[in-house]
Design a protein around this nucleic acid. Sequence first.
DNA 1: ACAAAAGTGTTGCGCTTACACCCATGG
DNA 2: CCATGGGTGTAAGCGCAACACTTTTGT
Lengths: 238, 238
Amino acid sequence: MSYCYKYPRPALTVDCVVFGFTAEEQLQVLLIQRGLPPFAGQWALPGGFVQMDETIEAAARRELVEETGVENLFLEQLYTFGAVDRDPRDRVVSVAYYALISLQSHPTQAATDASAVDWFPILAAEEDPFTQLPALAFDHREILSTALQRLQSKIRYEPVGFELLPPKFTLTQLQELYEAILGYPLDKRNFRKKLLKMDLLIALPEKQVGVPHRAPRLYRFDSARYEALTQRGFVFDL
Amino acid sequence: MSYCYKYPRPALTVDCVVFGFTAEEQLQVLLIQRGLPPFAGQWALPGGFVQMDETIEAAARRELVEETGVENLFLEQLYTFGAVDRDPRDRVVSVAYYALISLQSHPTQAATDASAVDWFPILAAEEDPFTQLPALAFDHREILSTALQRLQSKIRYEPVGFELLPPKFTLTQLQELYEAILGYPLDKRNFRKKLLKMDLLIALPEKQVGVPHRAPRLYRFDSARYEALTQRGFVFDL
DNA sequence: ACAAAAGTGTTGCGCTTACACCCATGG
DNA sequence: CCATGGGTGTAAGCGCAACACTTTTGT
C-alpha cells in the first residue's frame, strides 16, 4: 500500500523539547535514545510523524505519551525547522514544541520498550549550556537552543515557571527555578517583594515538613486570579 | 507522473502576512484575489506550496515575488497552522510568515497575471481591527490575527518598526506608525525623549521639504549601532 | 497674520536596586 | 547550642507619566 500525490511532499514530523526541574538537579531536558537509523544509538528529542487525522499539537502530545509516558503537560509550539538537508534520508520538515513539567509530580519514566529515556542537565549560566548533553541527532541541538532561548524570555513576561514546580512550592524553590533558567542570581528580598505584590500567590496554611531547619511556607499559583487580572490588562513581569 | 510514499503526508504550504504602512492610509495588509478553487474569487494571504529543494523561508520569499512582486523584505516565521480541516480539499499544513515593507520605497504592485493584488487597511484601535477587510479564504483571518498580535508585541522590544518606514523618516511618522500598530495614542514628548536617548537614530542634515508648514527633521535608523549595543546586552524597549 | 505641525522641560511618584541581620527549627 | 536555611525593611536613585506653550514655515 502506498500513497501517491501529483507533486512531491516533504514528510512532516514533530519534535518536543521537554524541560523538567528538580531542586537538586536543576533544569533538565528529556531525551530518548534512538533505536532505529538514522542516528541509531544516538540521543534525540522525542518526536515522530504527524498523522493525517490529528492536529500537529495532538501529534506532539501523542508522541510524548508513547515515547516517554508523560501526559497532560504545558505544551506550546516553538518553531518549524525546514532546512533541506536536516534529515539525511529524505526531506523532513519538523514542527518543534516545548513542554514544561514538574519532575516532582510526574516522576521520571522508566525506559519504554527497547529504547532508553533519560533526563540531562542544562546549565543556563554557562556560555554553552549543553556541555552535559550527549551528541544529538539531526538538528536537535539547534532546536534545543531555540527552546531554551524561548523559555528564558517567556518566563519573564508570562507565569510559565509554575508549570515546572509542584502545585505547592516555596519561594526559595521558585527563585532557584528562575535562577536555573535565566542563568544568573536574583536578589532574595526583591524577588519576594515583587512576586508577592502581584497578588498571584496564595500562601497556604501548611508549611513544608521534614527539613532539618526552619520550615518554609508553601504557596500555590492562583491561576484564576491571573486570568482575571490579564483580562484587565495586567502583564506579568518578573 | 506522481510521487508515492509508504505513509500518507499532509501537503505543506506557506502563507505570508505582508504588513505595509503609509502615513495617510495607516497600517495595511496585502491580499490577493484567488483565481482557482477552493475559494475562487475570494481574497486570501499570498502563499503556496513548499518545494522539495527550498527551505520554508525560501518558499515564502519565492511566493511573495511570484504573486506580489515584492522582494527583499523583512520576513519572520510566525506560526504553523495545522487544523485537520483547514483546507476543504486535503490535509494541508501551512507555515505562516509575516513580512514588513515600506510602501513608500516599494510602491504597490499592479495586479499580476489574472489575479488581483491589493492593500487593505487594518484598524488596530478597533475592537475588531479587520472590519475593513473582505472575507478571507481558509483560516487566513486567524493567521492575520495572530500576525497582528505578534507585530504588536514585537514592535515594543525589537526595532522592527523601521522596516515599515522609508530609510529617512521623521519622528512624527515613527510615532504615527507605533500608534497605528499598537492602537492607542502615545505622548509626543515622552516618545521622542525615549527614542533619542537610545542613541539609535541618526539625525540627518536635510529636512523634509514641500510641506505647508515648518519642515521636520529627518532621521535614519542606525542598524550597525543597534547590532553593537545588542552584543553588549542592550535591549530595545519602547 | 494665520494656520499647521514641529519641537522642547520639569516635576512627582513609583519602581528598582542594593544591602545585612534576626528567626525558627531539628539534630 | 549550633548549623541551616527562612524570612524581613529601608534608603537612594532612576525611569516613567503627565502636562502646554513657543517656534518655524508656507500661504
